[in-house]
Nucleic acid binder design. Structure first.
Length: 679
DNA sequence: GTAGGGTTAG
């Protein structure tokens, strides 16, 4: 696997930018074709270089308007490198040409490149300055905002956009005091300044100020009401949002945007599962089958209204109602199709999803990705592969879905294959990729690969809770329990039960009973609520450590204190606990009273204990049950035979051996609860 | 043809 990481490093060294954007944009780059050839197994789209097809002299003299139009079109369609080539080859440029290029880099967050152009540009206008400031603002760090502020303070003249950009910059990183100072000192405010303050307050949870500003603002535009409503909803103030809509929704000034506001609220109700109220709002919007085109200024349902309502039904798992609306729509967009397809993929009706997908006019990458994850959910790797191969444009989510799908379906080698291919094709893994690959390492019990991925994690992403959980699980499964504990101890946020389950489970499987129980106590003290998984580990620890009373106590506490319904795994552990204390009758009684069907672990625990405590009668019951559950397994025969031998019951032993031969049972080593040494 | 604030999905 070392070559995998080396490949990744090489890609990053050759072109850190292209490693991010990959083949999607097919930019010309000298190092790229070689890498593509390495990985070209037929699934990689062919590369077409457009740089050579652009005549160098195509933009001369007064044709600046066409040049600028061309560049902005290339940037809008994601072809930044092509735009740069056109820019470099142009004989004449004006400030708009430069600004467009700066804008392209700002949109991609490639600040160093944007700044280089900005510094090279002699005839800067106010837009150049505003663009560069917005570049720093969009990076949301305090270091960047200071640089943005520096430009703002030093620019020769400012317009309203400059002020608004700075205000929203402060608002986004929670520095509302500074936003307010700017707002109060700006010479002239626009409706955007007010809207920026309102969203700023709402992003920072200051609901009352947002409402106050909304009511105080001298004029409102299309965005004002929607900004307030969506912000209120994000703050969990759904009823307040509803009240605002009732109060302001009928005012003429907001009328043109009323659909927008209604749509926001419909989505808000949907998020909270309040489908009926959402439908009530939806029904209040006039429906004109011939109209509904956005921008006609009338208050009537548009495609987003339909999509939002369908989304509510999909979230509430009411696919029939969702489909009913979908079929009624006169004009659908990609979103409508995708949400309906994902609705079917989720109830797990991939067949119906496929039917819709095949009827869809222009499936986009998200549609293909939905079909991939749907196929994975029903365990069909072949179908997922088929979609993956056929899709015209793959993105990071496509790769992640394949890797996660292979991992979930326990085809770990397949997952590694896709991960390797992904790196070779220049797609940069994100935290989702790395988390899946760590689970792959756990599945393969491959510490070496796991450590390499850990290194990749350290270099590429800030480890979040799920990544740390995956690391803990990986290290503990690979036997490095101390390394797992180090990661656990270094986690600042310890409120996720999965982290605790991973660590306690790790201790449990390594037989560190004391540490497991200590951590379990600490977890409860920190008010992290244990789950049924926690109790499986805890009960197993009690069984292995022979802590009979503790085991009984924990089982009881799980049911009464935490209201967790015991599963067969808990009963298996409890039976084991009781058996280790030699109370076989009690164990048998427990098995008879179990609400679920006892499995091999339950009977295995009993049978193992029967041999230790020489209870032939119960051993026969347990062995028979095991033979029924797993007719091919030699384990119950072996154990029962050994017990007969221990007890000197030679006749029974011989009979059993004959039966075993008759049933063509072949002894297989490797059952942890079987001691076949004297067989 | 370039800059600032607002709805729906994984």
């Amino acid at each position: 696997m070392t070559y995998l990481v080396i490949a990744w490093r090489r890609i990053r060294m050759r072109s850190p930018d292209l490693a991010v954007y990959g083949l999607r944009n097919m930019q010309p780059f000298c190092g790229w074709p070689m890498l593509t050839r390495i990985s070209n197994n037929g699934s990689v789209p062919s590369i077409s270089f457009t740089s050579s097809s652009i005549p160098k002299s195509s933009f001369r003299g007064t044709d600046l308007h066409s040049l600028n139009k061309k560049i902005s079109h290339l940037i809008r369609t994601g072809r930044l490198c092509e735009a740069k080539t056109v820019f470099d080859n142009a004989e004449h440029r004006n400030t708009v040409t430069w600004n467009s290029m700066i804008s392209g880099y700002v949109q991609r967050r490639e600040l160093a490149k944007a700044r280089k152009l900005f510094d090279e540009l002699c005839e800067r206008d106010i837009v150049s300055w505003n663009l560069m400031i917005s570049g720093y603002i969009s990076c949301r760090g305090s270091r960047y905002i200071e640089e943005g502020r520096n430009l703002f303070d030093n620019m020769p003249e400012r317009d309203c956009v400059s002020w608004n950009t700075m205000i929203s910059g402060y608002a986004r990183i929670g520095r509302m005091d500074e936003a307010l100072v700017l707002f109060n000192s700006m010479p002239e405010r626009s409706v955007v300044s007010w809207n920026a303050m309102i969203t700023g307050f709402l992003h920072n949870g200051i609901v009352e100020h947002a409402i106050e500003f909304f009511e105080r603002m001298p004029e409102r535009d299309a965005a004002s009401l929607s900004a307030l409503l969506s912000g209120l909803i994000q703050n969990g103030e759904l009823d307040k949002a509803s009240k605002v809509l009732t109060e302001h929704g009928n005012k003429d000034e907001a009328r043109e945007d009323l659909v927008h506001a209604y749509n926001t609220l419909i989505a808000g109700y949907g998020q909270r599962g309040r489908v009926e109220e959402a439908r009530h709002l939806f029904d209040q919007i006039p429906f004109c089958p011939d109209g509904g085109k956005e921008g006609n200024g009338r208050f009537e349902r548009n495609v987003v209204s339909w999509n939002s309502m369908i989304t509510c039904y999909v979230k509430a798992r009411d696919i029939a109602s969702a489909r009913e609306l979908f079929d009624l729509m006169t004009e659908r967009d990609t979103f409508s199709w995708n949400i309906m397809i994902s609705g079917y993929v989720h109830c797990s009706n991939v067949e119906e999803a496929s039917k819709l997908f095949s009827k869809m006019p222009n499936p986009d990458t998200l549609s293909w990705n939905t079909m991939i994850s749907g196929s994975m959910e029903i365990g069909s790797l072949k179908l997922a592969n088929d979609f993956f191969e056929r899709m015209p444009q793959k993105n990071l989510v496509s790769w992640n879905s394949m890797i996660a799908g292979y991992e979930k379906n326990e085809d770990y080698k397949g997952a590694v294959k896709f991960f390797t291919q992904m790196l070779l094709e220049g797609e940069k893994p994100d935290r989702h990729t790395l988390s899946s690959v760590l689970s792959v390492c756990t599945g393969l019990v491959d510490l070496h690969l796991g450590m390499q991925i850990h290194q990749l994690v350290s270099k590429t992403v800030l480890p979040d809770v799920p990544i740390n959980n995956s690391l803990i699980t990986m290290y503990s499964r690979c036997g490095e329990i101390n390394q797992a504990r180090t990661i656990f101890d270094e986690m600042k946020l310890k409120n996720d039960v999965i982290s605790w389950n991973a660590m306690i489970g790790g201790y449990a499987s390594h037989g560190f009973s004391e540490q497991a129980l200590e951590l379990f106590k600490l977890m409860k003290r920190l008010k992290v609520r244990p789950t049924y998984i926690t109790f499986i580990s805890v009960l197993n620890v009690c069984a292995h450590a022979g802590l009979v009373e503790e085991g009984r106590k924990q089982f009881k506490s799980m049911c009464s204190e935490y209201g967790i319904e015991p599963q067969v795994e808990h009963f298996a552990a409890l039976v084991d606990v009781v058996c280790r204390h030699g109370q076989l009758e009690e164990a048998m009684d427990l098995i008879n009273r179990m609400p679920c069907e006892p499995d091999t672990a339950v009977w295995g625990a009993l049978l193992g204990a029967c041999r230790v405590h020489h209870n032939v009668e119960l051993a026969q019951v347990a062995a028979e049950a095991l033979m029924r559950l797993e007719p091919e397994s030699s384990a119950p025969y072996v154990l029962l035979y050994n017990l007969y031998v221990d007890m000197g019951q030679w006749d029974s032993a011989t009979k059993l051996r004959t039966m075993m031969e008759k049933n063509k049972i072949i002894k297989q080593p490797g059952y942890s609860w079987v001691d076949s040494s004297c067989f």
